[in-house]
Design a protein around this nucleic acid. Sequence first.
DNA 1: AAAGATACATAAGAATCTAATGTATCTGAC
DNA 2: GTCAGATACATTAGATTCTTATGTATCTTT
Lengths: 113, 113
Amino acid sequence: MIYSSELIKGTLKTIVLKLLADNKKMYGYEITQRVKELTLDKIQITEGALYPTLHALEADGLVTTESEFIGKRVRKYYTLSPSGKNKTKEKVSELADFMETMKFLLDIKTKTA
Amino acid sequence: MIYSSELIKGTLKTIVLKLLADNKKMYGYEITQRVKELTLDKIQITEGALYPTLHALEADGLVTTESEFIGKRVRKYYTLSPSGKNKTKEKVSELADFMETMKFLLDIKTKTA
DNA sequence: AAAGATACATAAGAATCTAATGTATCTGAC
DNA sequence: GTCAGATACATTAGATTCTTATGTATCTTT
């Protein structure tokens, strides 16, 4: 089972930031594979979604990049900047809080007539 | 604190379906207020988001409507159809599953270098 | 009488994703 | 040695879904 795509909306940036916080330095393709692996294929980040997100993080100064050649192929590593680390904490705790709220919303049964 | 808007994306439809499942019959404005109340103001559904969503649910045959006059004012009640009830179960369990996955993603620390 | 709440609705624009497409290299199997 | 599939970057048209603004109208409370 793969989650319907609309669920990813809004959480992708946070997922990416969190992975970078935990792994110090990652490249795009690696991120897609790591997420796939960690979520047992349930979340599949497409490249069309990931690269624009990474570029946006860079434009916002939340990550810095360095390119490395693996043979003849370029690999672009992303690393959190100091402001990126702060942003990550904010986003992660906001999402955690949101999930608690959603859990509550999905559990309740009010006036089950 | 109000959640940043992108978090709502993709969950609104599920929230609405779940509320209808629990309350049998609700009208638009009531839904916005109920969500606000249940989430301690952390989720504020705007009318610009809610009404198009309700209309879409109706167009998909997931809800039926009946209008009622309160004085001179119309109030439009929404009720889940049988297929809406099934859809609600699907969406709620998918979202619950997704939140478990996200919780896991946000908790782990791999290779914290 | 006026302000604020109730109650519906639409529409332009922004944000963010999907799906498709493109380029190029590397690796393993046959 | 060649071909498929994986690795690795990227962009773009289009779809979806929200925000913000606007509109209309009634009801309630001061």
